[in-house]
Amino acid sequence: MPFERPTLPMLLERSAADIEAWMPGGDAHVPSHKLHLLGKVNAGAAHGQHGHLAWLAKQLLPDQSEWETLLRWGSLWGLAPLTASGAYGDLPITGQPYALIKAGATFQRADGWEYVVSQTINLDAAGNGLVPVVSLVGGYAGNCVAGTDLRLSRAVAGISASVKVGAKGVTKGADAESLESFRERVTFRLRNPPQGGALNDYVAWARAAHPAVTRAWAYSNQMGPNTITVRLVCDHDPAGLIPSQALLDEVYAYIRERMPATPVLYVIAPIPKVVDVRVVVSPDTPVVREAVSLEIQDWFLVDPDIRPEGTVYMSRLSEAISKAKGERSHILLLPIKNQPAGPGEIQVPGVLYWSET
């Protein structure tokens, strides 16, 4: 039978019974008696020791261990949490012909976020050039969409002070890997030892390539004989879970360096299949609606069947809605049946509609 940790009241009673057994005539149950106080002290100490033992038990395996112990587990297999990645890209700048901008010059966004020039370049004869920049601080917040205004932090002779981010943006910034994400990689490594090119190896390589990658899947021969197809998503990216081509290229390069030479590798984004939801909820209040909305969004991220060519099962979606805080009952009106994804597709949450009873 599994060991059941005794509660503090149970320990108090045990301590009092032990004292009375060893001291005939003494009564450790009288609140004001010194024997009762001695029993409380003993029970409190034992309760603390049981708590420490319970904490130690969770450190024995990586599925429940805390950060420091998880780092030790990861180090046994050469795994370390991925640090935050700084956004980078090329800025189209203008100025006088052949003007020089040196590495180390910085551009600043309106909110104060800074980007440093990583390579010295000269403008061409028409006064145009592309200068590579990288965010000084890692994280999703450093990403810039096309058209974002940047300005030189300090004037550079012959270079226009203001610039707009080009069509490709400044991308691939990502927050540092979370505890649970690192735990997933460690437990995946424990369950799937490297085999020099098995499908699980491609999943592990994709997850290790960049902190933005949160889920990945590998398939053999989908693109023809002797091919490996890797699909991945970025669940925590504010821009959406479908990865950019720049990120796909980086993951491709990372895997290509480690995989066997013979297969043909494809690293591609899954095709989003939008799944709209309509629900009647009771009680129908703004607070309950917000809770239901959050549960649905989370469910699309964690349900194991939400994957390329997976299926949205109505029963499991309904179960997720039932977990919403304050929800008493609901009726799921849409989707009207299970939603399987086609080849290369992955289901993503669409519009959430509310209906009244």
Rank of each mutant, 00 (worst) to 15 (best):
R215M: 04
S153E: 08
L248Y: 09
G169P: 11
T262D: 11
D201K: 12
V213P: 04
G104L: 06
L190E: 08
I336W: 12
I242Y: 02
A161R: 11
R109Q: 11
R231W: 10
R151E: 13
A157K: 15
Q96T: 14
D63T: 08
M1Q: 07
M23V: 06
M314T: 03
P283H: 06
A57P: 03
I121T: 12
V133G: 01
Q49W: 14
T262G: 02
H36D: 00
S322V: 02
N122Q: 14
V170N: 11
N128I: 03
T106V: 14
P272D: 00
N226D: 13
L37H: 08
V280A: 13
Q297G: 00
A239R: 15
A176Y: 01
A341R: 03
T285N: 00
L136Y: 07
L12D: 02
L352E: 08
P9C: 08
A208D: 09
C144W: 00
K40Q: 15
K172I: 10
L332S: 10
N128Q: 06
S181Y: 04
A324I: 05
V230G: 15
W205T: 08
E180I: 14
G169S: 09
L53R: 13
I331N: 03
V267S: 01
I93W: 09
T285D: 00
D303T: 04
R258L: 04
E319V: 01
E309Q: 15
I268M: 05
R189G: 03
P272W: 04
L352R: 12
